[in-house]
Nucleic acid binder design. Structure first.
Length: 287
DNA sequence: CGATACACCTGTGTGC
DNA sequence: TGCACACAGGTGTATC
């Protein structure tokens, strides 16, 4: 599910319910997701107040007043579902929860005075950890991440240097979170199409000028996706239950067989497989 | 070191 | 209707 725009959308959806809120009760309903939860996670969260909700790459960061930060990764299928306890049921299923049972794959439930936030993750590729806030950049999952694509540290010189000498296809180089942090399969396909770069081209063999042009294109596609509230593939929804609509903005992703949307191109969107994952591209205007 | 394959896990869509 | 199979937004680890 979630690449950077989706995680940012989730962050914004959760902020009204969680920022400044005290966790009065935390229900940890299994010992692990992709990895074991940290020791005593429920106890370390219970009673803490969330000072701010942040994001680094695809990681949600809940900064607590205890000096620790709750790190959340949604994996492929993770969702955060907000229920406003004071309002009407906000989604189907809320009634049943109140009757005493929880839907499948609801693994961790955060209770505040006014809301319930449920981490649901069918495939369990997600993760949670607790780490000292002042040492977050050294957390093992985040230590090797590249720059934020929407931040100042992501610029032409960085990307040119990151690609230099790389023989891997540019598709794989952009999926590598050390190059730039937060892109996933969808937005790499979209960015390469907008930049007119073939996904199979070796990263180190693209002219510096074209690599430089990728930077504003990546910023643009991520910015548009965030503004649209992310993409809603399959059943993914925003935290408030509404649907993101950027999937309607896809130019190539999941559009095999459609006419290439590049003006005057006339090509056809094709699907190929690179390192086991689908790549959508137009071989006519992407070189 | 870099590049690639595989692993983790469940749900959904497709074709027979 | 049932069943087998391909495929799905990520990323750490093993292997060459």
């Amino acid at each position: 599910m979630p690449e950077l725009p989706e995680v940012e959308t989730v962050r914004r959806g959760l902020a009204p319910a969680l920022e400044g809120a005290r966790l009065v009760y935390v229900d940890v309903r299994r010992p692990d997701l992709r990895w074991p939860f940290p020791d005593g996670m429920a106890e370390r969260l219970s009673g803490a107040t969330i000072r701010a909700l942040g994001r680094r790459s695809k990681y949600l960061l809940a900064h607590l007043d205890t000096g620790e930060t709750l790190i959340v990764h949604l994996g492929m299928s993770g969702r955060m579902v907000v229920d406003d306890l004071a309002g009407a049921a906000t989604r189907p299923g809320a009634f049943h929860r109140d009757a005493g049972w929880l839907p499948q794959h609801d693994h961790v439930v955060l209770h505040t005075a006014s809301h319930r936030v449920t981490f649901n993750d069918a495939r369990r590729f997600g993760a949670m950890d607790l780490w000292p806030t002042e040492d977050l950049e050294n957390h093992w999952l985040m230590a090797k991440l590249g720059p934020e694509p929407l931040g100042n540290a992501f610029h032409a010189d960085h990307l040119i240097a990151a690609f230099r000498g790389r023989t891997t296809p540019v598709k794989a180089a952009l999926l590598d979170q050390r190059t730039v942090a937060g892109l996933g399969n969808i937005y790499v396909c979209e960015a390469l199409h907008r930049a007119g770069i073939a996904p199979t081209r070796r990263a180190g063999r693209i002219a510096a000028r074209r690599v430089a042009d990728l930077v504003p294109v990546i910023r643009e596609v991520l910015g548009e996706a965030i503004a649209a509230g992310g993409s809603s593939l399959r059943d993914h929804r925003q935290a408030d239950g509404t649907l993101g609509y950027f999937q309607h903005g896809f130019r190539v992703y999941d559009r095999e067989g459609h006419v290439c949307p590049t003006p005057d191109c006339g090509g056809t969107v094709r699907r190929i497989v690179q390192s086991g994952r689908s790549t959508f591209h137009c071989a006519r205007c992407q070189r």
